[in-house]
Nucleic acid binder design. Structure first.
Lengths: 170, 170
DNA sequence: TATTCGAATTTCGATGTCGAAAGAATAGCA
DNA sequence: TGCTATTCTTTCGACATCGAAATTCGAATA
């Protein structure tokens, strides 16, 4: 299968960068950004397949992950919509479905009755954990070409980028 | 605005990694993968805003980019659907709209009349170029914390990962 | 040649998402 | 207190997307 490929992923990536540069982008920028998106695109495809096994859409995954990352703190539908990059009105039905499956619970906020507090059930956390452990397999495989020190270096460089993300929109 | 932030992006990232590790992921893997997604998530939000100025949805952008990357080679709707990670049936209407705007042209394949060949018009390429040049601004800003040699190192490490992407699905 | 299988596109009904507006409750201020 | 502005959620209609079926054409085989 891989033998039939006309171009290696590397060559394809180089050609993509050349296209963006020809359109007016800077090479040192496009080389990095294009590479980042090449990786996430492949990962997204694998996630979609694996999540289908768990009866989980990408949208439902993002809700699960947001709640898991929040730990003990409950989140409101609006916060979940924001964290999931979706319109608040879309979150209503999504939460309905997930609550129906027993993955999360909703209860009114005692201190502010316009709000609803959403939290993960034990079953929801178990599904989150199962998804993480399954994903870790292909993620680990994705990084298998890097040594331990290279992984650290890659993480370090990306974290420098993350550090600067907050101050841009101005 | 940034002063009101409770956590830095860095701390948030560290907490996210800790959550994935607690759920069963490996730290050296999650640190990299989570960082990659933190970057693309922010970028996606900016793209969405900038593309709105150009009257361009993310889906339309992916078609534009796929055609631009293909250069002189025409692509079929099925290929575009594949490259855009969308169902072939969804591509029909998307191409209708874009052709209506004069961004692309469709013509039957003389050698195989079940196929349709899609190509970018001059106007389509101009819009692609405008989008690339606009995007390059925030992309460049995103990488401003990295020196030239660090950008090269980051690109090099990501390209190692890309090189291994093809041989995984087995 | 005739037939069957496969590939590419489109149509169709169901579902998910969006933006705008409505409804409910809080917060700030005279 | 009474009024206004704001926040949060949901409802609603419009549109995009999906998977399955239908259609059309090409390719392989008997």
């Amino acid at each position: 299968m891989a033998a039939k490929r006309r171009q290696t992923a590397q060559q394809e990536h180089a050609a993509d960068v050349a296209t963006y540069v020809a359109a007016g982008g800077e090479e040192s920028v496009q080389r990095v950004i294009t590479a980042v998106y090449a990786v996430t695109k492949k990962l997204d495809q694998w996630y979609a397949r694996q999540f289908a096994d768990l009866d989980l859409s990408q949208g439902e995954w993002s809700v699960l992950a947001a709640l898991a990352r929040a730990g003990d703190t409950c989140l409101t539908p609006s916060q979940l919509a924001d964290l999931s990059s979706v319109a608040p009105s879309s979150m209503t039905h999504r939460l309905d479905k997930m609550a129906g499956r027993g993955l999360l619970e909703r209860r009114p906020d005692e201190s502010n009755r316009t709000r609803i507090l959403v939290s993960l059930t034990k079953e929801g956390w178990n599904l989150f954990s199962a998804a993480v452990r399954e994903s870790n397999v292909v993620e680990s495989d994705t990084l298998r070409g890097l040594s331990t020190s290279e992984r650290h270096e890659l993480a370090r460089l990306l974290e420098i980028v993350i550090d600067g993300l907050d101050d841009i929109e101005a």
